[in-house]
């Protein structure tokens, strides 16, 4: 089979999986469905010749599932009051609007380069000179840590800030709840 057929199959699988993740009532099933979508994305990266991304996506998906399950699984809130029931009219209007967006954006996709025939202006330089200029056989590593190391520095900063933010949010809780108890 050509690669396009495989990718259509995987993408269809991902769409079905994400709709299931959003519509299912049970929380654990929902989180597992999102995990399936992420793992299917990892397989798609393998088909698209990006083994670096496949490894990273696979591991991060596992990590995200563990975080979500640790944080959310113990609660029984969705048995007491069901927040997943939504306004029917609002849902209908949203679906129609998104369908219209899809319909009108089909013309845009015709203007893009066809699948399998990228332009590769910048990439040609990287592919020809990357190994000799950086000494790294893995050209993706060569790009993220040599040609575009600024990107990686920014990314490390963003990760640092996000993690710091998460830690700060959690720590504030400790103190504020303590003072609330003191007040009460």
């Amino acid at each position: 089979m050509p690669i396009e057929t495989w990718l259509i199959f995987i993408l269809g699988f991902m769409i079905v999986g994400s709709i299931m993740a959003l519509e299912i009532k049970d929380l654990l099933s929902s989180i597992i469905a999102i995990g399936i979508v992420g793992l299917a994305l990892s397989v798609a990266f393998l088909f698209l010749q990006a083994p670096d991304l496949a490894i990273v996506q696979f591991l991060f998906e596992i990590f995200a599932i563990i975080i979500l399950i640790l944080a959310f699984l113990k609660k029984e809130y969705h048995k007491k009051d069901d927040p997943s029931n939504t306004n029917k009219i609002l849902t209908l209007v949203t679906v129609i609007t998104l369908g219209a967006i899809l319909f009108f954006s089909i013309d845009v996709f015709k203007a893009l380069p066809a699948f399998g025939e990228p332009y590769m202006n910048t990439a040609k330089y990287y592919l020809e000179n990357g190994a000799t200029e950086t000494g790294s056989a893995n050209l993706v590593s060569a790009i993220i840590l040599d040609y575009r190391a600024y990107d990686t520095l920014g990314e490390v900063t963003v990760l640092f800030t996000a993690i710091l933010g998460a830690l700060t949010i959690i720590r504030i809780k400790k103190k504020s709840s303590g003072t609330e108890e003191d007040v009460v």
Binding site: D52, L53, Q57, A64, P118, A123, L139, R148, E155, A162
Partner: peptide
Amino acid sequence: MVDPLPQALVLTSIVIELGITAMLVA
């Protein structure tokens, strides 16, 4: 070979996504 540049960009994007998820969970 396929284009390595988008792969490098997406590699950083995935990591940032996980940081964002952790922060949203918190």
